[in-house]
Design a protein around this nucleic acid. Structure first.
Lengths: 211, 211, 211, 211
DNA sequence: TTATAATCGAGACGGTACGTCAAGTCTTCCA
DNA sequence: TGGAAGACTTGACGTACCGTCTCGATTATAA
């Protein structure tokens, strides 16, 4: 079990192979048939598992999918994620965002991530779990990189780092999820630059743009 | 008909009362039971209409809901929306965003708008229709306000207005949809200020912050 | 119009081409798709006619099919049917029954006639119309042939001719409709002989079997 | 399960209560609303059962109705039916046929039996099942009674008993199903007498009519 | 010869039922 | 006792027809 369970199934007796089979099947189906057509029944069949085994350990389809993502993210490594810190904030952010959109543009991940995102949009409980377990560490990494820049005097002293993070990633994620426009390299570059410099005209005071 | 139709139902013979009843029922049910539990069958029953009448004119549940929004937005007025322009850009944006989050926080609209947003997230065709018919005019209004400020020298000359719009609204919409945090007045104020000034420190050159 | 109509459609103005097209389409569909799958809608489409035109002139699917048969039977000739009368009753009956089963065994007529028969089984009104308009003349011909034989002393004097007719045709029709057994030449020959002679042993009094 | 099933539903797990409820509901509805208006949906609702449970075990409405009859006939007794044998064949046959038409004239059984009969008329597979499981034992009883009479010298030695059975019951069943005339006591008496004696005049050889 | 009124083709409508799919619960049997 | 299997009730799916109801566009009398 990972997220939320029903009553008190004896977690100790849980069969790990079934758990993995279910989560793998869920993620695979997500890619293959799309979110709307993924069914508990389908996952169970694909995983070679009884439906009850799913219902016993997960409260909803969204929770299964969530755990599938969790398994994936934990599978890669057990450690906390870190953003690159070359000292050049703009370059670092640009690099990270370019990697992000590459993933978002990858058809293998697009569908599943949309599924997760919209599931979160409808289920507050899931959103909380997401914030804590999946997004939490990542967001912390982002904040950390910005704090480092702030301490180096590259960011405004009174900057609210949470707002700062959202100012950079919010536009990109929103454009992706709502399909407001294409996720191109130029676009994310532009977002980073504009966010850093602000919309207002910068007084020409000799300060170089990159810093 | 508004969005997409099947083969060649004779639109001239279409019964307007049924159309309105369906869209109204759809919107009402969205509020009452939530998107996932809205069914075509339920809409038909509530509207006092045969299911076929829905299937005849709309290709999917999402399309019905989309048209329900369209009806609402057209019902309010037929004219293009305009953002306030007092000359004080920051004040104007703040006012607009405060109104926006008030609506997003209103339980009557929260559910339906999430439904629309996630439906768009999964259906590119619907996303295109949304971009053109619902979001289009609004986005144009936002761009217009920013252009006015730009011409007044309040915004950078080389600013990409599309990026600018997303930089302001993206964070807010993303926080709303992903439930990343509460939509408070302070938050949107902070977003506007930070977006205008940028993340970097502003050199103190005597230029007043507001202007 | 032929059978029963609703209120007072002006029969004089009725379009004969449509009537024929409907009845022909009905009969053809009966052969092609079977009774259960014949629909008013299908008939109308096939006949190139509006549904209302059918509903205006016929009260039910069964009535349409009935009229289709009526058209066919009237199409062949306008005169009353006559059974052969060579003087040899057994030979005549055998010949007629052999012709009958040939038709019943013909797949082109089997389906439609079953449709008519079962429709009659469920609809007393239709049964009455059938008795009067389709079966009536035929039955009269059968009775006439038997009466002729009776007058020639070949049949019992006190014989109830209605019972006699049913004794000969009843077994055959019942076997056909209920699929109790195959309709072979031997079978109908046997029915005729047995009906004429009765089940009891015939005393050998010199009377020849064929008379 | 009794007649035909689809793929491989595990019959061992089948719920007997549901089966009985379905068959009972089917038979009751047949009486109440008539065959044409009996729907799978209606049966399911009345039986307090999911539609799928019907579709899982029966291939068609006709099959359900057939099984309903089967349940009834098996419910009455498990033994093979026997016709009375007092030695007086004519009296015995008359008694049996009188009982038969009493049932056929009973509105409680008329509708359901017509339903079964017409369903058989359209579905060969069902007809085979009927011949084997419902009609079979009864027909055997009829043949047995006639054979007994034959051995007693009351029937012609070379008589085909199948033809004989049909000669007696065919006319009655045909008159019933096709509504060719009323099923009265006189009628069945007349059928029996005429069938036994034949249509031809009986030579007055001293043999008494009743034997 | 025109009007005028009905029938006609077409097909949208409110419905009912179809036969299918999946949800979530429950029961049986196996390891 | 957890799990595989799968039957169960429920409910929605999307489709086919039902029988009713307009809608112009033909007709075919009656003015």
């Amino acid at each position: 079990m990972t997220t939320r369970q029903r009553a008190t199934p004896n977690a100790a007796r849980r069969r790990e192979t079934s758990r993995r089979a279910i989560l793998t099947a869920a993620f695979d189906l997500l890619q293959e048939v799309g979110y709307a057509k993924v069914s508990i029944e389908g996952i169970a069949t694909r995983a070679g598992v009884g439906k009850q085994t799913i219902y016993r350990w997960w409260p909803s389809k969204g929770a299964v999918i969530f755990d599938a993502f969790l398994m994936l993210s934990e599978g890669s490594d057990g450690e906390a994620p870190v953003l690159p810190d070359t000292g050049d904030l703009e370059a670092d952010l640009t690099a990270v965002l370019r990697a992000t959109i590459e993933e978002l543009n990858d058809p293998r991940y697009d569908q599943p991530m949309r599924a997760l995102a919209t599931e979160i949009a409808h289920d507050p409980e899931l959103a909380a779990a997401y914030a804590e377990r999946l997004d939490g560490p990542l967001k912390e990494a982002k904040r950390r990189r910005l704090r480092s820049a702030q301490q180096a005097g590259q960011l405004a002293e009174d900057l609210d780092l949470d707002v700062a993070v959202e100012l950079i990633w919010g536009p990109v994620l929103n454009r992706w999820l709502q399909r407001t426009g294409p996720l191109t390299t130029q676009y994310v570059d532009s977002v980073v630059t504009t966010a850093l410099n602000g919309l207002r005209p910068r007084p020409t005071d000799g300060t170089p743009t990159r810093g």
